[in-house]
Amino acid sequence: MQFLNKTLAIVWKDVLAELRTKEMFSSMFVFALLLVVIFSFSFDLRVEKVAEVAPGVLWVTFAFAGTLQLNRALSAEIEEGRLDGLLLAPMERSTIYFGKMLGNLLFISATEAVMLPIFSVVFNLNLIRPAFLLTVFLGTVGFAAVGTLLATMAANTRAREVMLPVLLFPIILPVVISAVKLTAGILDGLPWASLAHWLRLLIGFDIIFLAVSYMAFDYLVQG
């Protein structure tokens, strides 16, 4: 219970900071919007059926916008020496990991929640379906799980903004592939049985990488 309280305290701190400045959400949102516009222009000229490219566009947008959030969330902690403060607080280091992870998950999900209706309008597809929302949620969990760990790493290097995508994208590939496949399957109205293996892969990735990141995070912030 105490663990949960402390984790939520860290999440609340980030939410509060965000509510006061609103800089993260607005920049992520505008960035995602721009990506959608650029994608729809660049594909409109050639593709006949928009539904064929929509899953890819959707997930690339989420991944890019999410990277923005991850970079900001952790480099701000380190730049302003806030991480040292967190480390001094009487709690386990894994609490910091889960706190930051949940915060990232929350902010990325909020952006996605705003983007989905826009996607539905721009691509003329109905994306607000339970199965699809589940896919988005599971994909975002996997992304935030590894992303928080690797962003902590990248924030300590000299080339912060460049380092995170280089580290993150090859690792996150299974999430992107399975999320795109699930999205495409749902849009095409495929039977659930033919998509179940992708869902299992996504859940498996989430569990494995939450566990690995939880164990490894301690080693990143020590010293």
């Binding site: 590894v146 760990l149 690797l150 790493m153 300590n156 580290l167 090859p170 690792i171 590939l173 299974p174 592939i177 399975s178 892969l201 498996g204 990735f205 494995i208 990488f209 690995v212 990141s213 490894a216 080693y219 990143l220 020590q222 010293g223």
Partner: peptide
Amino acid sequence: RFAAVYGIVAFASVPLTFLSI
């Protein structure tokens, strides 16, 4: 320390990547 963590995370993702591909 960082390289060790990345080496572990990277290798853990390889089987999943292969499966998904």
